[in-house]
């Protein structure tokens, strides 16, 4: 019998629906809470070596678990490399840059004054976000030098050494929404996320809408997914008011509970089909 190991942090609507879709296709699903996993650091096979669907919503746990399981010979979706790249916005941006994929300009800095000077040089507004962050938390727009000074001061005064990295990105004046394209080898659909706030994250209250993905957007999202080497990804696109489309971020643990009813895209079933497609 076909079998998949599904690793989760919380058994949310998403994980439940994916597990149900796999089981509905005659595939056994073994569920593993990441909090309970203690894995030896060696090449010894984990359990029966079945493919692992990594649905840990913790970036730290997902990255380490995927890395360990790959050394043990498991096929992990998404791969440790894809998780490491997508979970770090600086590395995501670099992967996109390496493939010349259109994106907002961005820079990385490690010291307050030099970062403020560079923001000044590039102009306002601009955006700063933590390299490791989620759900739009601590993403901030800098409308002028005072805001830049304050935010850079906080960036470098608080936290530990790993937090003292400033990612600054071009602010894109969006037409009230951004776009998300789901990619599983190919683009399978998308949603538009509309908000009066400039942060268009459904975790922050943006409203999902139906979005028929045009071929040009699909191809752009597929190129972005290839750049980070992922299997099942959500590629966030920003559309400028003059019609250009830029890749903003890529997510490796795709959430869809807030959008699936509106989008009509059967993501759990598509994910199950994709996972079963990699089974030996």
């Amino acid at each position: 019998m076909k079998k998949v190991d599904l690793v989760y942090t919380r058994l949310r609507t998403e994980e439940r629906m994916i597990a149900d879709a796999l089981r509905g296709r005659g595939c056994a699903v073994e569920l593993h809470a990441d909090s309970g996993l203690v894995l030896s650091l060696d090449r010894e096979r984990w359990r029966d070596g079945a493919p692992v669907l990594m649905r840990s919503m913790s970036f730290t746990r997902a990255r380490y678990l995927a890395s360990i399981l790959e050394v043990k010979g498991s096929r992990v979706l998404n791969s440790a490399h894809a998780i490491s790249t997508c979970g770090d916005k600086a590395l995501t941006t670099l992967a996109l840059a390496a493939r010349d994929i259109p994106m907002p300009w961005a820079f990385l800095g490690f010291e307050e004054e030099s970062c403020v000077a560079e923001i000044d040089r590039r102009g306002y507004p601009s955006v700063t976000k933590p390299v490791l962050g989620s759900w739009g938390r601590m993403v901030a727009r800098m409308d002028g030098r005072s805001a830049a000074e304050g935010l850079m001061s906080m960036r470098f005064e608080m936290g530990g050494a790993q937090d003292h990295v400033a990612l600054v990105q071009q602010y894109i004046d969006k037409p009230g929404y951004d776009l998300r394209v789901y990619v599983m080898g190919r683009a399978v659909g998308g949603i538009r996320r509309r908000s009066e706030h400039w942060i268009t994250n459904t975790a922050r209250g943006a409203i999902p809408e139906r979005y028929e993905v045009p071929a040009s957007h699909a191809r752009l999202a597929e190129r972005a997914a290839e750049a980070v080497g992922g299997d099942i990804l959500a590629v966030d696109l920003l559309e400028t008011r003059d019609g250009r489309v830029l890749v903003n971020e890529i997510n490796h643990c795709v959430e869809f509970a807030r959008s699936i009813e509106v989008s009509g895209i059967p993501l759990p079933e598509l994910m199950a089909d994709y996972v079963l497609g990699v089974l030996p």
Partner: peptide, 11 residues
């Protein structure tokens, strides 16, 4: 009560 959401959770 479900575990508290941690800083690195979510997409």
């Amino acid at each position: 009560e479900a575990p508290e959401v941690e800083e690195d959770w979510g997409e």
